[in-house]
Design a protein around this nucleic acid. Structure first.
Lengths: 328, 328
DNA sequence: TTGTACGCGTTATCAG
DNA sequence: CTGATAACGCGTACAA
């Protein structure tokens, strides 16, 4: 009974490198050398093949914690987000990163980072990631860089010129003879820094074009009432507002739907332009498209560069492109 | 020089429990007992306070890998997703889970699981999670349960009656005098199992109500052409289709926007009903609302039960509710 | 309360 | 040149 139970336990147990070593008739050190292809170590092909085959057969997978304990790093790439509410663009980016890093043997993990919930100082020793990709937009860098010089940090946000996107919106509407603009700003605090950059861009462009600053109203993506109120406010301006720059396509779509439900037509009664070029916007929303291929590739390159301890190749091919549709 | 460098390295170094022990004038064992509040161990209050204060002062955070290596578990709750394209409901669920588990000292991590990219068998020893929450909808359970009896698995999907949601759509439209239904089915393979359940529900209801089966067309969320084509196909049916059950609100919104861009009116020229009650649908899309509070709470309870090794309290309060708006 | 063995993979040092 | 021995990383828990 006891024997059988022990037997069962053993079979359910993980396979250690010692098991492989015993089975292959070599030492644990040799197993390690073979499995890691340790540079500066020459192992005869015969042993190498035998060890690999044995490991394969037994289904040995090195215990990450043990490895991490010894090496001081974890083979983990940690993506920090401030929010699980990913937008289309972020989805694509995460997916591309995940695929790229997984292919190179890293484990890609996403963690919602909130300083109040769990400070970086605590999160750190729990993971010891090799690379951190911050998509939080907050200033993770300060807290991070002095914590562990070994860890690389990649800030995703600055890799895209958010300010320029905001400018392009205003410039386009100006070209369409709009002279008084509204701005739909998101309440979601997790995107504040991106939102502020985009708005700053629009403001800059307005100033340069001799327009008055845009009339800003906040849109809460979880409260359609905020859309209604914003539309009312814009309509009640003395000098008529004829076009809205939306923080992103999602908000632009909300505006469009709200207009429709009032019996108004977007692009006719009020012009709207978004940013991102999410799929649904192709149903008639003008937007500043972000070249997903490019922007994604740019981030992947930065992360790989961090991993490989080399400077990133900076590509400067344009990533933003204006797409005119029926809404403006 | 060398001394100063070493000094710096040491300050950047992590603080080990041994450091705390030395500083507090106790043994490492005692530090461990105090920090973990080990049951069955009585440590004098004086030492307890001293150790805690010292740990606090030095900023000691136990090394997770070492702990995990010793304990065989990792304090990690791993959420498996098949896709970073989270919908509103999943966002909320992840957020609630994250908050709940973090408060209890767990680290909540999200990982995109793809058997082809990295098989479970490999993923496993890399993390050794305490609990796995599968939101992938795939049959993770089989591969998982026999791998490590120690690990708990919670399948999120069965906790919601997807089939019933599909039924409710059809029943509602039937009540609105619609007798021939279309169905907008998502192409995204990552939601297939949910999609199939919802569709099955609609089919069941149609049969029970004496309706012909719904005319199914696929919608690719990344290809608006698929929406156009679906609308054309439904229109070209001999017996006219007057209402569409959409797999979810996102697709319902796409249908609505496509109708608008054709100069048609949703709810007038074609009825549409979705599922989820995402914020934007409140701008006029009828839907089967999912009670986020309830469904989220349900999953959290299951995960906590798994963690605490107790059966989950099953709440049977209804989670689905029909919301009638202008679109149907 | 303390000393110490243990979990498991890595690598410097040593032997053949 | 090939392979083995043993110490190490750090927190935990049993025996003393």
């Amino acid at each position: 009974m006891a024997a059988s139970e022990a037997e069962e336990d053993r079979s359910a147990q993980r396979v250690r490198s010692a098991d492989v070593a015993r089975e292959a008739g070599v030492s644990r050190a040799t197993v390690s050398y073979v499995l890691n292809n340790t540079p500066g170590r020459r192992i005869s092909d015969a042993t190498k093949v035998r060890v690999l085959a044995t490991a394969q057969r037994l289904g040995h997978v090195p215990h990450a914690s043990a490895r991490s304990l010894r090496l001081g790093r974890s083979n983990v790439v940690l993506a920090l987000v401030s929010d699980f509410t990913f937008g289309y663009v972020r989805d694509q980016t995460l997916e591309a990163l995940d695929t790229a890093m997984t292919k190179r043997g890293y484990v890609f993990l996403v963690h919602r980072y909130s300083e109040t919930l769990r400070p970086l100082a605590e999160l750190w020793p729990l993971i010891w990631p090799d690379v951190v990709v911050s998509m939080a937009g907050t200033s993770v860098s300060d807290a991070l860089s002095r914590r562990d010089p070994h860890t690389k940090l990649v800030e995703a946000q600055p890799l895209l010129d958010q300010r320029r996107a905001g400018e392009m919106q205003a410039e386009y509407l100006f070209g369409k003879r709009h002279r008084r603009l509204g701005y739909a700003y998101p309440t979601n605090s997790n995107v504040r820094s991106i939102a502020d950059e985009r708005l700053a861009g629009t403001r800059t462009a307005c100033e340069r074009l001799g327009l008055r600053p845009p009339v800003v109203h906040s849109i809460d993506r979880n409260d359609v009432g905020s859309v209604t109120r914003a539309l009312d406010s814009w309509k009640s301006e003395e000098e008529p507002i004829t076009a809205i720059c939306a923080h992103n396509d999602e908000i632009a779509v909300m505006l469009s739907m709200a207009l429709t439900s009032r019996g108004l037509r977007v692009g006719h009664d009020l012009a709207v332009i978004g940013i991102d070029d999410i799929p649904i916007s192709r149903l008639g929303i003008s937007t500043v498209a972000i070249d997903i291929e490019q922007s994604t590739q740019r981030i992947v390159e930065h992360v790989l560069a961090a991993v490989e301890n080399r400077p990133a190749k900076v590509s400067r091919r344009p990533v933003l492109r204006l797409v005119a549709r029926a809404s403006a």
